[in-house]
Each structure stands twice: as C-alpha cells, then as structure tokens.
Design a protein around this nucleic acid. Structure first.
Lengths: 358, 358
DNA sequence: CTGAAAGCGCTAACAA
DNA sequence: TTGTTAGCGCTTTCAG
C-alpha cells in the first residue's frame, strides 16, 4: 500500500499532471483525457492527498467544536447536531476539549495555525482575554453562549430569563411558595445568567420566599451536597429549582435520602431536559433550552460565515420550553409541555429571535 | 489579521527561512539567531501553518475516532477517554460519524486521503468488506470490537462471555430461575456476542428456564417494546437480562407500566454500567465492560503503532465487572461490585488479557 | 484543450 | 552554524 500521487496517475494516463488534475476535478478537459485519467486513477487506486489539497486550496475542510466538558449530555447533544450539519456539508469535525490541558483562550489562539476553517466554541467563562482572542482570530468562530453587547460575533444563545420564568411561574401555579435555587458556579456564563434569570423571575411573585445556594459545579455529586445543606436548614423549602438536570438529580437523591417524597414534600426542577430527565422517577420537570437546535444553528451560522466572510454578525436566541413531569406536580397529572410548543428532538422549530448587527 | 509566514519572520530577523525554521523548532542554531527569530516571530505574531507542516513532515498530528452512534453514553465515555490520551500526546481528535452518510467501510477507505495519522474504529458490524478495507488501509486502525481470528490488527475488546456469566450467576444466586434475555439486533457485533455469551452462561445452570427476544436496536424505546411483548406471554419470567443499559431501562418502564415491582416481581439487569444505571430507581444492576479503559487502551495501542509501525498486532481484552444495584436483589442489600474489583472511572486497572500476534 | 511552470508554507539535505 | 536549494502533492495561471 504505497502512496500513489497524481504524478503517477498522469504518467500512467500519458498526460500532464495539470490535465490529470483538471480531469479529476471536473474541470474543462476532453472526453478522452477524462477517460484515460479516470482509468489510470482507478487502476492505481489513486486518492488525492487531503493535506496537499488543503495547502494549495487554502482551506482544510475541517471545522472544530470546542467544549470544556464533553460528557455532559447537553454538550453531546449539541455535538451530534453539529456533526450532522457539518458532515452533510462535506466538512470533517474536530473535537477540542478545553477543559484539561488548554483553556478556551489557548484554543482560539491556536486557530492561527490554520488547521480548521472555522470553530464553534462553547466557553464556560467569557473573559476579556477570550474576547480579545476572538476578535483577533483569523478564522471564524461562532460562540455558543451570551456575549457582551457590541461583540461583533456570530452567537447562538439560550434564553435563561424566559427559562427561569417558565419554571418559577409553573411552581407558583402548582402552589409552591418557598423556593430554593441551587445554582452552579456563578463565575461561569450559565451560572451568572441563571442567577440573574431567577432573580428576575421571582420579582413577579413578591410573596415568594426564596434562597440561593451555589453548588461546586454542574454535577450530580455537587447538587447532592448543596441540597443536603439546604435541607438541613430550619425551614424546608417546598421546591428546589436546580440550574441543570445533573444538579436536579443530585437534589432528588438528597431529598430521598432524607425521607422526603417528591413531589409531595418537595418539588424539584431541572434545566436542559436531557435524556436523564425522562429516565429518573418521578420524571424530572425541566426546561428544554434547545441544545440540539442551538448546535444546528451554530453550525449553520458558521457555514454561512465561511461562505460569506464579510456578512453581518448574527445573534440567534433559541426559545426555551418547559417540559413538565412528575417531579413538580401536586397531583399526578401526566407530563406536558408549556409554550412554545417544541418536542424533544423536533427538527422543525423556528428561531426565537434573530438579530443581525455590525 | 493577515497570515504571516516564516518568510516574513526570516526577513524581519535578517536570516534565511531555513535558519528561522531551525530556530523555531529547537534545532541547532546560534543563540543570537534564536533570539532574533523569536523576537521577530513575537513581533509579527507568527504561528506556523499546520497544513504546510503536515505536508512537509508527512503527518497530520490528527487521529480519528469513528463510531456509528455518538449519543449512546458508552461511546461518549470511550470518546472522552480517547480524547484525553490523544490530546496529551499532542494530537487533535477528529470525530467521524459512520451512521448516517457513510459506512465504516467508506470511512476506512477515506483514510487513503491521509487526513489523519491513525484511526480508532468502533464498527457496529464487521463484514468481509470492512476487513478487506482494513487490511489495505495505509493508515493504522485500532478496532474496538471482536475481529475474526487471524486478522492482524490491533484490537481492544470487551469480554461478553464473562459478562453474561457474571450476570446469570448473580441472578441464579439471587434465586431467579426463569430468565428472559432481551438482546439487540444479532447481526451487530455486540448483539452476536451477547447472544452467544448468554447461551454459554446458561449451560452451567441446566435447571433454568430461558427465552430470548431481539429488540429492534439498542435503545430505550426498543427495549420497552420488546419487554412488553415478553411480559404479555403466559409465563412471566422472574428476571430480564438486557443487552445494554438502554434496553434495560426500557424494560424497567415496561414492567412498571404493567404494575410489576422491581426487583420483587421481576429482576432487571443491564450492560455497560453507564451513568444511567446509577440514576434510575431502583438502581440498575449492570456489567461494566470498561468503556473508559477500552477507549484509553485503544488510543495507547494506536500511538504505539504509529511510533513503531512494524510491531506485532496486539489484542487486549478488558475484564468486565458486575455492579450490583437494587434492580436484581431479593432483599434490600446495598450496591456492591463483584470480581474483578474495578471502580467506575478507576484509571488504574490492569488489562484482562493481552496477547501479541502476527 | 493541453502542458510547462509556479507556488501554497514549510522542513531538510547539502554545501559553504 | 548558516544559506541555498529542493521538494512534500496538489491546483492554477499562462502560453501554446
């Protein structure tokens, strides 16, 4: 299995390399040349070298998805959606983990090496340093998450404010009056926005009693610990609003271990509507932030920017939807979904908002 | 942000491109040259172009992981492990989905394009066509799964026979005597080996009553459907052995919907010991096939082969371990793990077997 | 329509 | 130690 080059194909076909290249790429060439070259290529088992093509054409046909914590089901869901769009467009997908060795900033800086034509970045924290790196990046980057106003970048974001409002309103409707909000770290983008979203949602219900605890991170274990702490207090809340499904599952465990029954003694809600939400018992009421859709849209924005580098920066906000399951109900209604209508995995949903700027 | 090349760095530093290259790559060069070149590179913001380096050096520093169904937690777990090893060795990881557009065979054939230095392949079905493509591949491939004897390829595999034996023995110990085996499609590699493994495991217990159903695929929905069918029969089994955790969760749902209590009326077991197993109630007894370890070992084998292409083909078998949770117990013991000792996520486990051949 | 030649950006001989 | 030169394999002017 020795590497066969276009030079050998050309020689075998009795034409120049230029003709061979043209014939192979569907450029202008006589029928006879095409036939000879095709034949030679087939006989020799020729396949064009991707690296050489990349160098010559100035593009790699590769895109990257950079995320801190692959392993979190939400990011996997996004990645699947991205992969689908990307491979359908003839690109290969590269996975860059930003968690361990390198930070988001490093990853963005490394883009200068030109190993991909574009990147989708899901940063945990958005720092000034990162924004600078993004602004200077020679390769287009689409950011999943909320950027400061004025950042001229393609962005796809969830709507944490609406999400929190949906949850709080629902709990109020179900008669809950004392809500503990278990957030993740507030120095992360999701943590910060869920904190603010919760605060905003609560203002509509001044009679509510609320408190907030920050879990160490967005995991089951951290959720468990945080909720044990909350439930150890004097006054037990009648609802726990968790910042994501993993924390929520930790909350369910903690409540169970204290002999509480969900939802009778305490309601629990999550965010992300991952597969886990449908698997635990009682089913976990959760807000679907449209991970699949966000991934798909991000990939589409990236492809559009590559096709037209000078186009205006777009920001797409994906509308959340509440999926009600047993963990938050008083009596045993079945699961239902609250506005806007959106089935999990549904492909045909409209964008919440799209604004072009810059 | 215009692309700056080594030529410009050399000019700025007042040396030749060769000297610039040597200085940048830690080759032999005078201290003064190094200083000048480093300075020039810093001033101009130079970063070497990855594609040009690849073309020249003849390697891409990229490895690929090809899998049909990313989204299945097991493959995500493997991918994380692979990513860790790969990025620690300075390689980038590419994700090739073989499910939708292209088959495993296409993916392997495409390796001829030279866009990666090696690949880890997790094929759902191993066909002669695939074996041929693998044998002819110019780039090394490590296969996750069981290959026919005589295939001179690096392989990492789980031990389905031991896995099934652990489960069946456990259920027998717990007093179960009528076992329904709910497999996935038997024309897939896992399906075929789990079928054979179950058959073998059962022979040690001739007094057992058993039956087998094949679910449509390895999903919760398919498991649910298959188990509804099983439980509709005249004689209800006292245990369901599912071919993976997803099918097992479908089984739990089906049993619950028929008003059965797990494990009192019926025991349920899974395979893979995914995160889901610890999250459902009752906890799902499951065999850990060492996904994390298999991924890690596969990556290590690949790196070893790239370093030494002519070395003998290795086959590593990872030992399974049974993780007992509530879904299979008669009385309420806590969770426990049966031989060999292996904690979920444990990094420091020995290989079950390693044989070198070829 | 075809071939010769240049060159993508880089590294590695080879001489000097 | 350094610079000159030759490619890596391919695509693309530019003459013919």
């Amino acid at each position: 299995m020795v590497r066969v080059t276009i030079t050998q194909v050309a020689a075998h076909a009795g034409v120049s390399v230029a003709s061979a290249s043209r014939a192979l790429n569907g450029q202008i060439a006589s029928a006879e040349t095409i036939a000879k070259v095709r034949h030679a290529a087939a006989v020799l088992g020729y396949v064009a070298d991707a690296t050489a093509q990349s160098l010559q054409r100035g593009r790699t046909n590769q895109l990257a998805y950079a995320v801190a914590d692959i392993g979190n089901p939400v990011y996997v869901e996004m990645m699947s959606a991205i992969e689908r769009v990307v491979s359908a467009s003839g690109y290969r997908l590269l996975l860059s983990s930003t968690g361990t060795t390198s930070s988001s900033v490093d990853v963005v800086r490394d883009l200068g090496r030109g190993y991909v034509d574009g990147m989708i970045l899901s940063p945990l924290r958005i720092t000034d340093e990162l924004l600078t790196a993004l602004a200077q990046s020679p390769t287009p980057v689409v950011v999943l998450g909320r950027l400061p106003d004025g950042a001229r970048l393609d962005t796809v974001r969830a709507d944490s404010f609406t999400a929190m409002r949906l949850i709080v309103d629902h709990l109020v409707t179900e008669g809950r009056r004392d809500i503990a909000f278990v957030n993740g770290p507030t120095d992360t983008t999701p943590g910060a926005f869920r904190r603010d979203g919760f605060a905003a949602a609560v203002t509509s219900h001044p009679y509510l009693s609320t408190r907030t605890v920050d879990a160490q991170d967005f995991t089951i274990a951290a959720g468990y610990t945080a909720v044990r702490q909350v439930l150890a207090g004097d006054q037990r809340p009648d609802a726990v609003v968790a910042a994501n499904d993993l924390i929520a599952i930790g909350a369910i465990r903690a409540a169970e271990d204290l002999g509480l029954t969900i939802p009778r003694d305490i309601a629990v809600t999550g965010i992300d509507n991952t597969e886990l939400a449908g698997v635990v018992r009682p089913g976990l009421t959760s807000v679907d932030l449209g991970a699949e859709e966000r991934g798909r849209v991000a990939a589409e924005l990236l492809l559009a920017r590559i096709a037209e580098p000078s186009r205006a920066a777009h920001t797409v906000t994906v509308a959340p939807s509440l999926v009600v399951r047993g963990s938050s109900l008083v009596a045993g209604h079945g699961p239902k979904r609250v506005a806007p209508a959106l089935e999990h995995g549904d492909e045909a949903t409209a964008f919440g908002t799209e604004e072009a700027a810059g």
